[in-house]
Amino acid sequence: MTTSSSLSLADASTGSYIRLERIEVQGVLRRRLLDLGFVPGNVIEVMQKSPLGDPTAFRVNNTTIALRIEESSLIFGYYEESDER
């Protein structure tokens, strides 16, 4: 397992895995993200960008959730070699 410095989901390259570290979104959306599985410690796969470049689809707990850059740039983690499962 290689760890590197933390980066936002918006900056992560497609196809990579990110272990979440912190979420700086506030309010209702923060709670919604938590409910969807964007919890610290969880591993997220960066799937693919929309044809127009935004939003981006993420794989979390075997579900695909699309987030806009406004949100994904506030979710931080570090690269993980692959899904731990």
Partner: peptide, 9 residues
């Protein structure tokens, strides 16, 4: 507003 969109299988 912020939102999340689920892409179901």
């Amino acid at each position: 507003t912020h939102y999340t969109l689920e892409l179901p299988p």
